Amino acid sequence: MRFYRQLGRIEAMTFDLDDTLYDNRPIIRRVEAQATEWLHTHHPISASKSNSWWQEIKHQVAEKDSWLRNDVTLWRLKSIEYGLIQLGYSVQQAHQAATDLVDLVLELRSDFKVPDSSLQVLDKLSKTMPLVAITNGNVDIHKIGLSRYFSKVLKAGADGRAKPHQEMYHKAVQFLELPAKSILHVGDHLITDVHGAKRSGLSACWFNDQNKIIRNEPKTRTLPDVEVKLLHELILLNER
């Protein structure tokens, strides 16, 4: 545990989910591979274009509607729709195909087990203070067994603009009815989590399980209040 500034009494915690409570990288790789396979199998015309073409489609739809960057599920839906329309599908055909694919992605997205070590930390913390989840992703916390630990879950899109925007952080403060500084946000990302939390008035904990050196990180915008390499350290922090 490393402190960058003096940390006052913590009365609640907010948590990022992906890459903080579990390693999301292999999950996303699996989901993307299976989603691509499904699309190519059920709609073979999609395989006529390269991955770079589909990435360009994704950028194009976001340029037309910048809000989509705040909602990863809707962004995927609109990207598949638009791409298939460009390949000759009718609007109705494209919408149905995109909806079917998104349904599959959401199912695959939450088909994994959260490490017991994370569950143990959340269990201990939730018995001493309220916890709120703040995520830019679309995981279903009920399906992965996290709902019992959180008093509230805030998701980008449905609950406001994506982190590092202040909207969801402010909603968490309003829900908790506590001084923002007494709420510690825990997350792995130096911009969306650390910078976003600090500019919203919360205290920030950088979860650095990759052994990065903060002064060497190009994404460093704001120093966290504290850095931990293991989630278990949060229990020790709470017991100060």
Rank of each mutant, 00 (worst) to 15 (best):
I10W: 04
H59T: 08
L74G: 07
N208L: 09
Q92S: 07
F3Y: 15
P26R: 03
I235Y: 10
I141D: 00
L7W: 10
R109I: 02
L84I: 06
K171P: 08
E37Y: 10
G160A: 01
P44R: 14
A33L: 15
I27E: 13
M168C: 08
M168L: 15
V61Q: 06
R148F: 04
K152N: 02
Y4H: 15
L122Q: 05
Q174T: 13
E167T: 14
Q86F: 02
T135V: 12
E107V: 10
R215T: 14
E239C: 09
K219C: 13
I80N: 00
V132L: 06
V102K: 06
L236E: 13
G137W: 12
E107L: 12
D159R: 04
G187I: 01
K219G: 14
F207H: 06
L125V: 12
K78S: 02
M13C: 13
K212R: 13
R2H: 15
K58R: 15
N216V: 05
S48Y: 04
H142R: 05
V228E: 07
N138Y: 09
G88M: 10
G83A: 02
S117C: 12
H59Y: 02
M1D: 06
E32N: 09
Y89F: 15
R109N: 09
P218D: 11
L146I: 04
S46T: 13
L237D: 02
E32T: 08
S203F: 15
Q6F: 14
I27Y: 08
L108E: 09
S151V: 01
Y4G: 12
K64D: 07
S79A: 11
T36Y: 10
T14P: 06
K198A: 03
E167A: 12
D19K: 08
I134M: 08
A12R: 07
A162L: 01
K181F: 12
Q92T: 04
Q60D: 05
V114A: 03
K163Y: 00
I57Y: 02
S66D: 09
K198E: 03
D23I: 07
P130D: 06
V72M: 10
Y4M: 09
P224Y: 06
L106N: 11
R148A: 13
V153N: 00
G187E: 01
E56A: 13
D225M: 09
S110A: 09
L230N: 13
R30L: 13
H189Y: 15
